[in-house]
């Protein structure tokens, strides 16, 4: 296997997201903000595979979101 193993999936519910932008602070490896302040994932979609070394940061991102728009799942 090449590259780090993807162990989790980070899911963004776009109907909940209110552009607080905490996720981009806590998890800049995954999210950057668009011109309206909403997170854009490196994966280009709403589901982002999270490698093992980013799982704890992803958990922090889930907790930091004021509207609980993020959730971490087993793939």
């Amino acid at each position: 296997m090449t590259g780090p193993e993807k162990v989790r999936q980070l899911v963004l519910d776009p109907t909940l997201c209110a552009a607080h932008g905490m996720c981009a602070d806590v998890l800049p490896e995954v999210y950057e903000l668009d011109e309206w302040g909403y997170p854009v994932s490196v994966s280009g979609g709403l589901r982002t595979p999270i490698p093992a070394e980013l799982v704890s940061a992803a958990k922090r991102a889930v907790r930091s979101c004021p509207v609980r728009a993020l959730s971490l799942h087993k793939p």
């Binding site: 776009p14 109907t15 997201c17 552009a19 668009d34 011109e35 309206w36 302040g37 909403y38």
Partner: peptide, 12 residues
């Protein structure tokens, strides 16, 4: 108007 990219992106 539920999702930001649609709500703000489409008018832009």
């Amino acid at each position: 108007g539920q999702c930001g990219p649609c709500r703000f992106g489409l008018p832009s």
